[in-house]
């Protein structure tokens, strides 16, 4: 059963002479517990697509449905992790993780139990009372993931969450995300321009074209799980990576010619 269904979504910014079509006829289905990754060149509108799914932006036309219900507004059922650090700097790690729970009106005692569980899940036990300004970039993103998961969303939306981290930290975070996802049995829509990241994480990869962005291809990643960084040197990994690289290469070349 598909959890998220995007049908015929178009997005046009502005009007008249300044009109820009960002997305063109996007169709995709994300199944329950699937880890779907959208990969595409910068400026292809992949973040716009994610924002539409989050309800932070509206599609010009087309339909986005979550469990069959049309999405119009942002909501706690679609928690988002951003590339920029979005922890609330005035709240401790624990209070950050409890932010959504508090809004839902969950009792303090219950909140504590839930936040404790997710802080441990992302490996930050002992940092409950730390303020964000004392955390490293990787730790901040782990708290952001815990904060979203604690809310028990139907789906996790991730917009290049590891894009601002250094290469080593990024690999550690990718592996940790895989462990968390296996344990939590949650549905994820993940956006990146990093092909390695896409192949390592995904069940299915949607390759997007340059602007106006459309889904060029859906690639099923049949590398067995559980995966870790070692699969990145396997022959199958290289095959899939090469396939995507060639597709994106065509796109970036065509985009360069256009300018």
């Amino acid at each position: 059963m598909s959890r998220l269904k995007v049908s015929g979504v178009n997005k046009i910014f502005g009007n008249g002479a300044t009109k820009v079509q960002a997305l063109s006829n996007i169709n995709l289905n994300v199944a329950e517990n699937e880890l779907a990754v959208i990969v595409g060149p910068s400026g292809c509108g992949k973040s716009t697509l994610l924002n539409i799914v989050a309800g932070l932006e509206q599609a010009t036309n087309g339909l986005v449905r979550m469990n069959g219900v049309e999405i119009t507004n942002p909501g706690a059922d679609r928690g988002m992790v951003f590339q920029s650090y979005t922890l609330f700097p005035w709240l401790t790690v624990q209070k950050n993780v409890e932010f959504g729970l508090k809004i839902k009106g969950i009792s303090k005692k219950e909140r504590q139990g839930i936040s404790q569980r997710y802080i441990e899940l992302v490996g930050l036990k002992g940092f409950e009372d730390a303020l964000p300004k004392t955390l490293s970039g990787g730790m901040k993103q782990r708290v952001a993931i815990a904060r979203v998961l604690a809310n028990k969303p139907e789906m996790l939306l991730m917009d290049e969450p590891f894009g601002a981290l250094d290469a080593q930290t990024r690999v550690v975070m990718q592996e940790q995300l895989l462990r968390v996802w296996e344990k939590e049995q949650t549905t994820i829509l993940f956006i990146t321009h990093d092909i390695d990241e896409a192949v390592l994480l995904a069940d299915n990869i949607y390759v997007m074209s340059r602007r106006p962005g459309c889904i060029k291809e859906k690639i099923k990643v049949d590398i067995p799980r559980p995966r870790d960084h070692r699969v990145t040197v396997s022959p199958r990994f290289s095959e899939i990576k090469k396939e995507i690289m060639e597709m994106l290469w065509e796109e970036s070349q065509a985009a360069a010619m256009q300018r």
Binding site: A54, G55, L56, P74, G75, A76, R78, G79, M80, F82, S84, T86, F88, F99, G100, I103, K104, A144, R147, V148, N151, L157
Partner: peptide, 10 residues
């Protein structure tokens, strides 16, 4: 993004 994060947390 801080406001948007809050929005997606409900």
């Amino acid at each position: 993004d801080l406001m948007r994060a809050a929005a997606t947390l409900g």
